[in-house]
Design a binder for these strands. Structure first.
Length: 272
DNA sequence: AGGTCGACCTGGCAGC
DNA sequence: TGCTGCCAGGTCGACC
């Protein structure tokens, strides 16, 4: 599910809802979602901690504490959800439940279990953070940086956008949407893009991601924010999941193609 | 080292 | 109704 805009939405909501509260109880219903530390360590290192901050890096949520150097890393994978609720009872997909000092519950739901919950003293303990690329909405992601970085890669542009070591936070929905907005064909070789196209790609990346953050993400399927609500960017999606439907610009039937084992959607006429 | 592919999981849905 | 096959928003490790 969740790409940068969805994870950003969840992190902001969590920040408002759980900061300052103490973790009174940790219940692990399925230990398979706990990685990097043993499940009993996971419980021991969270229990009694007071939440100081919630932030995001790439598609990971980072939760810090006032009274410990430990950081709780939540990666939602395809179907992970972090739901704050007044109801302490776990639902069908709940894998971990926390009880907070205001008596609310924080449920980690994840039916497919591609997500992972980890505790680290230093982010670099986890391979995900060792080589992660720049944040596309921050300064380092400039046209000149992008231009230099693209020239180092021979792969098609679409799978490169999915590579978290290239740029952080873009996933399969937004990669397709960004390329449509840019007018760039997903099979174009990254190193072959012209200066004008690179500028378009840069602008489209920021425009699409910013709009999606503003609209609290997309809900194609199981994505929910920390309130359990769906995102509104789903109404702005122009190519993802629209195989054989008309291009909203030229009317041509949109194409779905497998690229690197993942579906890519595009307009063969608008994207060159 | 960069690029590519399969594995990891469960569930929903289309088609028969 | 019930079965089968396909598909799903991510990441990692093994391979060339």
């Amino acid at each position: 599910m969740p790409e940068l805009p969805e994870v950003e939405t969840i992190a902001r909501d969590l920040k408002a809802k759980i900061t300052g509260f103490k973790i009174e109880e940790v219940q692990v219903l399925d230990p398979r979602v706990i990685r990097h530390v043993r499940p009993d360590d996971f419980v021991r290192r969270l229990k009694g901690r007071v939440i100081a901050s919630v932030s995001r890096r790439g598609k990971a949520i980072i939760i810090r504490f006032f009274d410990s150097a430990d950081q709780w890393i939540v990666q939602l994978g395809m179907t992970g959800q972090m739901i704050v609720s007044g109801d302490p009872a776990p639902s069908r997909g709940t894998k971990v439940t926390l009880r907070l000092s205001n008596n609310s519950a924080l449920h980690y739901n994840d039916y497919r279990m591609f997500g992972r919950l980890q505790i680290v003293g230093d982010l670099k303990e986890i391979s995900y953070f060792k080589k992660i690329g720049p944040e596309p909405l921050e300064k380092k992601f400039s046209v000149s940086w992008l231009s230099g970085a693209l020239k180092k890669h021979n792969s098609p542009i679409k799978p490169l956008l999915l590579n978290q070591n290239f740029v952080a936070g873009i996933g399969n929905i937004y990669a397709s949407e960004i390329l449509f907005e840019s007018g760039i064909h997903p099979s174009r070789k990254a190193s072959d893009l012209k200066d004008k196209e690179i500028a378009l790609l840069h602008a489209a990346t920021r425009k699409i991601l910013k709009m999606a953050v503003r609209l609290r993400g997309s809900s194609v399927n199981t994505y929910r924010d920390a309130n359990g609500q769906k995102g509104k960017f789903v109404n702005r999606i122009r190519v993802y999941g629209r195989e054989n439907e008309s291009c909203l610009i030229c009317g041509t039937a949109l194409v779905r193609e497998m690229q690197g084992g993942r579906s890519t959607f595009y307009c063969g006429k608008c994207q060159k």
